[in-house]
Computed example of a mutant assay.
Amino acid sequence: MEQEPHLTESQPATPGTLRPGGRTAKVRRAVLDAARDALAETGFHALNMDRIAASAGVGKTTVYRRWGSPVGLVTDLLHDMAEQSLPASDTGSLAGDLRANAELVRATLTDPRMGAVFRAVISAAGCDEECARALAGFYRTRLDEWTPVVAKGAARGEIPAGTDPTELLRAVSAPLYYRFTVTHEEVTAGVAERAVTAALAAAKDGVFARS
Rank of each mutant, 00 (worst) to 15 (best):
D97H: 10
D97L: 00
D97Q: 14
L98A: 09
L98E: 09
L98G: 04
L98H: 13
L98S: 05
L98M: 03
R99V: 09
R99I: 06
R99E: 14
R99P: 00
R99D: 10
R99L: 02
A100I: 14
A100Q: 13
A100K: 10
A100S: 15
A100C: 09
A100N: 13
A100G: 15
N101I: 03
N101V: 06
A102G: 05
A102K: 04
E103A: 11
E103K: 09
E103I: 00
E103G: 06
E103C: 00
L104M: 14
L104S: 12
L104P: 00
L104K: 13
L104I: 12
L104T: 03
V105G: 01
A107I: 00
A107D: 08
A107Y: 02
T108H: 07
T108L: 11
T108C: 01
T108N: 08
T108W: 02
T108S: 04
T108F: 06
L109E: 02
L109V: 15
L109I: 12
T110I: 09
T110R: 15
D111Q: 05
D111T: 11
D111W: 13
D111V: 13
P112E: 11
P112R: 14
P112I: 11
P112A: 11
P112N: 11
R113V: 15
R113D: 07
M114T: 06
M114L: 13
M114R: 06
M114F: 14
M114D: 04
G115P: 10
G115W: 09
A116N: 13
A116G: 09
A116F: 07
A116K: 14
V117Y: 03
V117T: 12
F118T: 14
F118V: 02
R119K: 07
R119Q: 07
R119F: 01
R119V: 05
A120Q: 04
A120K: 05
A120R: 04
V121Y: 06
V121Q: 02
V121A: 07
V121I: 15
I122S: 00
I122D: 00
I122Y: 07
I122L: 01
I122A: 04
S123K: 10
S123L: 01
A124H: 05
A124S: 10
A125H: 12
A125Y: 02
A125C: 09
A125I: 05
A125F: 02
G126F: 03
G126E: 11
C127S: 08
C127L: 04
C127I: 12
D128M: 06
D128S: 13
D128I: 10
E129T: 15
E129M: 10
E130H: 09
E130K: 03
E130Q: 15
E130T: 12
E130S: 10
C131N: 09
C131H: 04
C131E: 11
C131K: 08
C131Y: 06
A132V: 05
R133V: 06
R133T: 08
R133H: 02
R133Q: 08
R133E: 11
R133I: 05
R133C: 07
